[in-house]
């Protein structure tokens, strides 16, 4: 495949990575650490929100992020015809 196409594939990949990693950072370091104190003022159920992000929420989001990435990349691989088999 020609170089320009591949370049395009790679920069789309980088765009996905950037977006997903921003979410990754915000839920864990943002909500779970830097902003815990203000978020702890909000509570839902028996949880303070900041504490919940640090001990539960961030982990759920991590799992979702990987599956989103997988489906984005599988589609991208097909579109640029770089998928295996």
């Amino acid at each position: 495949m020609e170089k320009g196409k591949l370049q395009e594939y790679w920069s789309t990949n980088l765009k996905y990575l950037l977006g997903l990693l921003v979410v990754w950072f915000v839920v864990s370091y943002g909500f779970g650490i830097l902003l815990t104190d203000p978020l702890n003022a909000i509570s839902f159920g028996g949880f303070k929100l900041g504490f919940w992000f640090a001990q539960q929420g961030s982990i759920y989001v991590f799992v979702i992020l990987i599956f989103v990435y997988v489906s984005l990349m599988n589609r991208l691989d097909k579109k640029y015809d770089v998928h295996e088999d």
Binding site: S28, F51, A54, Q55, F62
Partner: peptide
């Protein structure tokens, strides 16, 4: 208590990096 979150986030968040990077 809350400080234990370092292990919870620390030992799971790395998998996002692994999968993506």
């Amino acid at each position: 208590g809350y400080d234990g979150s370092i292990y919870l986030m620390g030992w799971t968040g790395g998998y996002v990096l692994l999968a993506l990077l």
